[in-house]
């Protein structure tokens, strides 16, 4: 795994948008060409900086969605309607255009293939992005670590990567995915909409005795609720890693 960041300080660099995909009506995946990219670990993020003609700058962090095994740098950006940066990334930036970024950064909310214990991923809305990078890295490496993803979305149409997740559940041994719908369920779903609760994590997570590594990513209230449930179920707080973002789910 000779893909640690190079020594030295980090600087901003130019990236070019080469491909795009819509993951839902409001989430767009940007495939970026970044010359001399040093590689990244699943869970790491980059900072994007936009500069207006008058010099005003806005900076945001976005999780990397792709595993470096695919040799691409992909972001999935959820549009926040009153946001300063995300509407530009989802709706304005065109193929062939450039943006400024620095990264990869963050060495805490990452999964390493050398970890030996089962993994529980808990995603709220676009919090799924860094967790998807972990799932993709695991799949690319044909790693056998048992993974479970509990993915909370408002409606079926809000789920990112739905087709790929279904394919990976079939093709990547040891991966399970459980969707939770908070506002509207698919037709024929056996339960009414609800938020993630103790019963959800108890039923679809791992028992605390398995000492799983837990990764929780989503809006602040979601992250705090899920982390509290994990602690209440007996999970070691040191094995619960959280990442929260500012937008609403």
């Amino acid at each position: 795994m000779a893909r640690a960041a190079l020594p030295g300080r980090l600087t901003w660099r130019a990236a070019t948008l080469t491909e795009e995909r819509w993951e839902s009506a409001t989430a767009r995946t940007l495939v970026l060409d970044v010359p001399d990219w040093p590689g990244h670990l699943p869970g790491q993020h980059i900072d994007v900086r936009l500069t207006a003609p008058d010099g005003y700058r806005a900076q945001r962090s976005y999780s990397i969605a792709s595993a470096w095994e695919s040799k691409t740098v992909e972001l999935t950006v959820q549009r926040v309607d009153d946001g300063e940066v995300s509407p530009y990334l989802t709706d304005t930036l065109q193929i062939g255009e450039q943006l400024e970024l620095r990264g990869p950064v963050g060495g805490w909310f990452v999964w390493r293939e050398t970890q030996q214990t089962p993994v529980l991923l808990v995603a709220g809305g676009s919090g799924v992005v860094p967790l998807m990078a972990m799932i993709r890295a695991r799949g690319a490496a044909k790693n056998k670590t048992p993974f479970r993803l509990i993915y909370s979305v408002r409606t079926p149409g809000d789920a990112c990567y739905a087709d790929e997740l279904a394919r990976r559940v079939r093709d990547d041994p040891g991966l399970d995915v459980k969707f939770v719908y908070t506002r509207k369920t698919p037709d024929g779903w056996p339960a009414p909409p609800k938020r993630i609760d103790v019963a959800t994590i108890n039923s679809y997570g791992w028992p605390a005795e398995f000492t799983p590594d837990c990764y929780v990513c989503g809006p602040t209230t979601f992250v705090e609720a899920a982390a509290d449930i994990l602690v209440a179920l007996g999970h070691d707080p040191k094995r619960i890693r959280t990442e929260r973002f500012g937008g609403t789910s």
């Binding site: 300080r9 980090l10 950064v105 963050g106 809006p219 959280t242």
Partner: peptide, 19 residues
């Protein structure tokens, strides 16, 4: 809404050679 320390990684990585 607050973020968390993960979001400081870029700024701190401009100052330090470690994460």
């Amino acid at each position: 809404n607050p973020l968390d320390g993960n979001a400081m990684a870029g700024d701190l990585r401009e100052l330090f050679t470690v994460d």
